[in-house]
Design a protein around this nucleic acid. Structure first.
Lengths: 216, 216
DNA sequence: TCACTCATGTGATCAGTGATAACATCAGCT
DNA sequence: AGCTGATGTTATCACTGATCACATGAGTGA
């Protein structure tokens, strides 16, 4: 073969030395995060996986924080895209609201380590423009779905409902993911009947402004 | 002075070499956590603060995880004690419920780094007996307060309400603490009017089973 | 075609980390 | 008095993030 590669043995290949080391590092990081969580990520480990010297990573990321930020960015964007798609696939305010919630819960349940990494705000560079933009997109998605026109509601009450809904979903997901409540029931869509009950109550509250008349 | 101490210069003093190195390490850790967060804690750093060789710490803690576990234990126990005291200082189910919630929110707002450390479940040894017991005490406190006798309520609905309340409070606190929502308003008891609104809505929901008729 | 340049990767090295082992020391008991 | 065990020290290891000088090769312009 005429293209005698350097010492790399992996499936890199591309134009330059490595091809796209930045991508390769992010992909390797994805694998590590999925397998062992974001705290197990090390620059040297990623470099080893990709077959490159540790210092090479610093050509593409100023420091580890920048790497984590870029990873977080991509994860947020993916979450936003899939959530928006699921929301836009259905009609009706209440259903769309529910679709968004379920998209978040689904993401958290399918890729717990990835979702958990998203919320480790202290690990990212909160000045990073890409990251800020991704966060903005997520906020916008959430609020454009929650803040639906609701003629006869007091706007302040409506805001309170939305924040409470956001917090409750976040809390349910976080508590389950961190092991404070079990969500291992395979028969239940949300992992446990109690969680599903709480979720239904929440939906009823936000959709109808009431909760007492939910039937179980 | 007849008690010629070893080379320590600090305010240790006690019976043996150091006095109570275990305590001193935990106290030093408390200082670091409060100032810079739990991720900034290093065994060597603590040993340096206390004026002792790094390896000395391993005489009192099997590894770093054990140290963090012990710290978490003490923090949980303190939270439980103060929350229970605040709850028992008032009368009436609804008021006691609110007192517990406010105790948790207060702890989180007054000692954010400490509270955040509490929730880093992946950092502790979840087999540790002391830690398990502390967690049990907290669960018990929460549930003995939330699960008040409520004759005419469907138990499943009641459980859903309680879980939703727990999750919502946890979510509000977490979101605020992690900077997803601002809670820096000095005029508001919970840090921001939106948070207070959401909190009032939650209390109304859980206390009365409704939310639509809250006045703002 | 040739030389220049800049992006990319290498190797050596640094300080800091958790952890372990061999050694030293002191308290308290017999 | 002397033994023993708890406690602390010193030395060392493998690992981490980070930085430096240096090498190499892709692409460009003359």
């Amino acid at each position: 073969m005429s293209d005698n590669e350097p010492k790399h043995t992996d499936e890199d290949r591309g134009s330059y030395h490595h091809g796209d080391l930045r991508r390769a590092l992010l992909d390797a990081m994805g694998a590590v995060v999925t397998r062992e969580g974001i705290d197990a990520v090390s620059l040297r480990g990623l470099a080893r996986m990709v077959g490159v010297a540790p210092s090479a990573a610093f050509r593409h990321f100023r420091d580890k924080r920048a790497l984590v930020t870029a990873y977080s960015c991509e994860a947020i964007n993916e979450l936003v895209v899939t959530a928006r798609a699921k929301r836009d696939a259905v009609e009706g305010d209440a259903v769309r609201f529910e679709a968004i919630i379920l998209a978040f819960i689904g993401f958290a349940r399918e890729q717990p380590q990835r979702f958990r990494a998203l919320n480790r705000r202290e690990l990212v560079d909160i000045e990073d423009l890409d990251w800020l933009q991704a966060g903005l997109a997520m906020d916008q998605l959430v609020f454009e779905t929650l803040n639906r026109p609701d003629a006869d509601a007091n706007p302040r009450l409506q805001a309170a409902r939305n924040l409470l809904a956001w917090a409750a979903v976040h809390g349910l997901v976080t508590l389950a993911m961190d092991g404070w409540i079990s969500d291992a029931d395979p028969d239940d869509p949300l992992g446990a009947p109690e969680i599903s009950d709480a979720y239904r109550l929440l939906v009823a509250l936000v959709s109808q402004g009431r909760g007492a008349d939910v039937r179980f």
